[in-house]
């Protein structure tokens, strides 16, 4: 009986062991527990779901895309036939291809809906301009994925979509002709075209998307979730800093520190959610045996990477 009880404690021990090794309390757990503006408890909070929804669909696209890539043959003489096999021969192939197809449409719709929400809520304003900029790049990347993905079908639609894209690119000033030759990978749409688009769709753009999502999410966590706008309340750097004194301290070493701001070097460790003043923040560590031993460890950019802790 006591052995059984011991075995029951094992998962907890494993979690504790991993938690200590990875310092999850400071990193992952802190991010998971990050506070959000209290207004989001009301139905207005549903407006904030669109970014996560896009991310969820993106993950589904990655998974279904990997599945499709296991059967799809990116050669112009077999691409169409391999897709016919996926749709009509492979087990559950039609489902996976359908998920990828409808997921692609959902990505575009959700990205645009997310952008509309951010625009209407004014969430692109200070201090979240960088979120908006990375988001704009993600929008372009999503549209590029939609384009390069649909032409991998290599049917008549796909072939002429490549031609139309090349002709449109040709109209760009100065570099137009070069762009055309890069798009069709040569002088004409031919044997080399499809493999280039395949590599672009499967490696190039996804790599960029992963990096951009990383930046985008880092900024969301770092800057905090935006509050719903209040009519008459301006969102500009001075008033924002006045309301949230711990937010967005100027990084310039020579520049003046905003009044009321904690100097950068003394700022609390990274997951402090400075931009959410009315948050229901819980203390990160409630363990009395955990005490702060040293100042926060900082990365080369001045971003605190976490706090060094030890337990007795």
């Amino acid at each position: 009986m006591s052995r059984l009880r011991e075995a029951g404690k094992l998962p907890g021990r494993v979690v504790t062991w991993l938690g200590e090794r990875f310092e999850l309390e400071d990193s992952v757990m802190a991010v998971l527990r990050h506070p959000v503006p209290r207004e989001l408890e009301r139905p207005v909070g549903w407006w904030y779901v669109l970014g996560s929804a896009t991310l969820a669909v993106f993950i589904a696209q990655v998974v279904t895309g990997v599945g499709l890539a296991m059967t799809y043959v990116p050669a112009p003489n077999s691409a169409y036939d391999s897709l016919q096999f996926i749709s009509h021969g492979a087990s559950l192939g039609a489902v996976v291809r359908g998920m990828h197809y409808f997921g692609a449409g959902a990505m575009v719709i959700l990205v645009l809906a997310h952008m509309t929400q951010v625009y209407l809520f004014g969430a692109f304003k200070f201090p979240r301009e960088a979120n908006w900029l990375t988001g704009s790049l993600l929008l372009l990347a999503t549209l590029a994925m939609a384009f390069t993905g649909q032409l991998l079908r290599w049917d008549q639609d796909a072939f002429w979509a490549v031609v139309v894209a090349a002709e449109q690119a040709a109209r760009a000033p100065i570099i137009g002709e070069w762009l055309t030759r890069l798009i069709v990978a040569g002088n004409n749409v031919g044997g080399a075209t499809l493999t280039r688009f395949y590599a672009t769709h499967v490696f190039l753009i996804p790599a960029a998307i992963f990096g951009l999502i990383g930046m985008h999410l880092y900024l969301v966590v770092k800057r905090g979730i935006s509050e719903p706008p209040v009519a008459g309340l301006p969102v500009d750097p001075p008033s924002y800093r006045a309301r949230m004194p711990r937010c967005c301290v100027a990084v310039s070493p020579s520049g003046p520190t905003p009044p009321g701001a904690t100097p950068l070097r003394r700022r609390p460790s990274w997951p402090q959610w400075c931009c959410s003043p009315r948050s229901s923040a819980r203390p990160i560590s409630t363990n009395p045996r955990t005490r702060r031993m040293s100042s926060p460890i900082r990365g080369p950019t001045g971003i605190s990477l976490g706090t060094s802790r030890s337990s007795r």
Binding site: P76, N77, G191
Partner: peptide, 10 residues
């Protein structure tokens, strides 16, 4: 001079 795998695309 089509690529061997060009198929109809050539």
């Amino acid at each position: 001079s089509p690529l061997a795998w060009a198929g109809q695309t050539a």
